[in-house]
C-alpha cells in the first residue's frame, strides 16, 4: 500500500503552550483515519499543519510525496480540505462559490462543467444553487463545504469535524458520502463523536494534550476497555438463591470479578469480568446449561469506546 500522508515528529508551539507534541503517523491509500481527542487536544492544529495553513514549529508533513513546506502548491493541489465550521464566502451563491473554487483548482471549460454537475448531484445541492450561502441552513452550508473539498477529486481528503452540528439525518448523509469515497482516497477526519468512528473509520488515532496516545482500528481500541469480553447475564431465579449463584459464577476459572446489576425477587442480573480480558461467554453459558438456569439474557460486551477514550485522555 502506498503511503499518502506521512507525518514525522510534528510539533507546534504557541508561545509557551505546546499544542502539538511530537506526533508521527502515516496513512495509506484506502484508509479512513479518525482523529479523536478532547476539545483543545490539538486535532485541528494538526490538521491545519497538514493542509499547510499553519507552519509547524518542527517536523515534516508529506502529502503524496510532496513536502508541504518545500513545495506547498503541489501538496495543496492534492488535498481537499473542509476547515472546521465549513467557512465559505457568505455573499456568494453556492453556484458562484463552487465555480470560483473550480477555477482556482484549475478546472476549465467542459471538464469544469462536468465535474461541477457531478459533485452538485453527489451532495444534493441542485435546489439551492442560486441562493446566497448566507441564507442556507447549516446542513446545506456543510454540503457546500464538502463539495468544495472534493471538487478537484483530491487524493487526500481532510475533514475537520464534518458532521458537527448536523441533525441525525444529515450526519448519516455525510457519513455515507465519506464511506463512498473511501476506496479511491485517503481520508482523515476529526470528530469527537465516538459512534462516528465505528460508523466510518478504518483506523483511529487518539490525541490528548498534543500527544498521540493511541493508534489502532476501532475494535483494537475497544479491546482496551474494561468491559471488553465482559458478560452480562440475566436469569430467572428466586432471590434466595442469589448468594449461591454469585458464588458459583465467581468460582468459574476465568471470571475475575462480579458486579450485581439487579437482584429483584424473580430476576437476577450480573455483569462478569474476565481475567486478562479473555473470552468467558462460552464458559458461562455452558455452566448455565449444566445447572439448568433459566437464562433470560446473555450479552457479550465488545468494549466501550467512550470509556477507553476517557481513560486514555484523562490519564495523560
Amino acid at each position: 500500500m502506498e503511503t499518502m500522508v506521512e507525518i514525522q515528529n510534528l510539533c507546534k508551539h504557541f508561545g509557551s503552550l505546546v499544542a502539538v507534541d511530537n506526533i508521527s503517523f502515516q496513512v495509506t491509500q484506502g484508509e479512513i483515519l479518525g482523529f479523536l481527542g478532547p476539545n483543545g487536544a490539538g486535532k485541528s492544529t494538526t490538521m491545519k499543519m497538514i493542509t499547510g495553513f499553519l507552519t509547524p514549529t518542527s517536523g515534516t508533513v508529506k502529502v503524496a510525496g510532496h513536502d508541504i513546506l518545500q513545495s506547498p502548491l503541489s501538496a495543496k493541489r492534492r488535498i481537499g480540505y473542509l476547515p472546521e465550521g465549513a467557512p465559505t464566502y457568505p455573499d456568494m451563491t453556492s453556484a458562484q462559490f463552487l465555480d470560483f473554487i473550480a477555477q482556482i483548482r484549475g478546472l476549465q471549460g467542459l471538464n469544469k462543467r462536468k465535474r461541477l454537475d457531478e459533485i452538485i448531484q453527489r451532495v444534493n445541492l441542485e435546489s439551492v444553487l442560486d441562493q446566497p450561502i448566507d441564507t442556507l441552513s447549516k446542513g446545506f452550508k456543510r454540503r457546500v463545504g464538502l463539495a468544495q473539498a472534493i471538487l478537484h477529486d483530491p487524493e487526500v481528503l481532510i475533514l475537520d469535524e464534518p458532521t458537527d452540528g448536523l441533525d441525525p439525518n444529515q450526519k448519516h448523509e455525510v457519513r455515507t458520502l465519506i464511506s463512498d469515497m473511501a476506496k479511491e482516497k485517503v481520508i482523515i477526519l476529526s470528530t469527537h463523536i465516538l459512534e462516528e468512528v465505528h460508523a466510518v473509520c478504518s483506523r483511529a488515532i487518539i490525541i490528548a494534550n498534543g500527544r498521540l496516545v493511541a493508534d489502532g482500528t476501532p475494535s483494537e481500541l475497544e479491546s482496551r476497555s474494561l468491559y471488553y469480553n465482559a458478560v452480562t447475564i440475566s436469569l430467572r431465579a428466586p432471590q434466595q438463591q442469589a448468594p449461591e449463584i454469585r458464588k458459583q459464577l465467581l468460582n468459574l476459572p476465568q471470571v475475575a470479578k462480579l458486579e450485581t446489576l439487579e437482584e429483584s425477587p424473580s430476576l437476577l442480573t450480573y455483569q462478569l469480568f474476565p481475567k486478562n480480558k479473555s473470552p468467558i461467554i462460552a464458559e458461562i453459558s455452558q455452566h448455565a446449561r449444566e445447572r439448568n438456569w433459566k437464562v433470560e439474557e446473555l450479552h457479550l460486551d465488545t468494549g466501550h469506546l467512550d470509556e477507553v477514550f476517557r481513560t486514555i485522555t484523562t490519564a495523560h
Binding site: K48, T51, G52, F53, L73, S74, K76, R77, I79, Y81, P83, E84, G85, P87, T88, Y89, P90, I101, I104, R105, G106, Q148
Partner: peptide, 14 residues
C-alpha cells in the same frame, strides 16, 4: 473573521 482565510490559504494559491 469569517474563517475563509483558512480556505483561501489552503487552496493552491500563493
Amino acid at each position: 473573521k469569517s474563517g475563509t482565510i483558512e480556505l483561501l490559504m489552503t487552496l493552491p494559491v500563493t
